[in-house]
Design a protein around this nucleic acid. Structure first.
Ligand SMILES: [Mn+2]
Ligand SMILES: [Mn+2]
Ligand SMILES: [Zn+2]
Ligand SMILES: [Zn+2]
Lengths: 141, 141
DNA sequence: CATCCAGATGCAAATGAGTCGCAAGTATGA
DNA sequence: TCATACTTGCGACTCATTTGCATCTGGATG
């Protein structure tokens, strides 16, 4: 979400030479339409609404392929399952409401900068990072 | 690591009324001696060096119990397996060398503060958070 | 268009970390 | 010393994800 949904994934797939099968077409539509971070089971469910009969193994395989090509991002939040979202134009991190499961995206240039600073201090360069805030509604006060 | 290893876990366990069995004694020793973030398989291996015959299910159960009591912390880095460390006196985050697997601990009050700020901005309070920097040695330049 | 085949799919079986049921063993308080 | 609630070993189980394999097909080619 917070994603202007630049280009449909299907075009990116074509560019990368992926065969566009009926199953993939639907899966890509579902991904493009998603404004959340669904896991494979949920993706498969959404695919099934548009086109029954697509096997969940196909969804798994497609997600792996898309992730390898960098067209989608893979996340694992605290439930331990693989979740996906179309690769965003601009990096963001996640804030997860532990009560509802809702995921909110945010970006802090300040934090990004401090991370770089820390890595540098130890003589490293950052390959990737993960920042997740597990939160609940602030009560009273 | 970076842990003054304040009090052996065994005392904390006694305080909490956990029965001190031979297996637990060894497991706790291994945890106290660890200066890294071993997974259960590795813990079981280390336990086996001191006292063969302890079942890995016992290690799993003990880790769950200790984590429930807050005596140890559970982490899941990018390999997806459960890793443990004695609960540190002071919160820290992790920097993981993707080439070697080495884990370095760091703490940034600055980042901690910014996280709070962000959560607050959205009307939430932080329950927990995860910050992991996956890094590699900075080459040349 | 008809052909061809590398790549894609469905299905079932395999994998692998972690959990659980149960019978047998034991730490600990009385 | 006893009683019993807690632990353990062990194998079976779970469940998300992966994989082997036979079959199918997108899309390049002529
Ligand atoms: Mn996101
Ligand atoms: Mn640590
Ligand atoms: Zn970030
Ligand atoms: Zn932190």
């Amino acid at each position: 979400m917070t994603k202007p949904k630049h280009e449909p994934l299907i075009d990116l797939c074509r560019q990368r030479g992926l065969r566009i099968t009926g199953q993939r077409r639907v899966i890509l539509q579902v991904l493009d339409a998603a404004d959340d971070h669904p896991n494979v089971e949920e993706l498969h469910r959404r695919v099934g609404e548009r086109e029954p009969g697509v096997n969940i193994a196909t969804v798994y395989r497609t997600m792996n392929k898309l992730a390898d090509l960098g067209l989608i991002e893979r996340h694992i939040f605290d439930d331990g399952r693989l979740r996906y979202e179309p690769a965003p134009d601009e990096h963001h991190d996640h804030l997860i409401n532990v009560d509802t499961g809702e995921v909110i995206e945010f970006r802090s240039d300040e934090i990004e900068r401090l991370q770089e600073e820390i890595a540098q201090k130890y003589g490293f360069e950052i390959v990737s990072h993960k920042l997740e805030l597990y939160v609940r509604l602030r009560k009273k006060r």
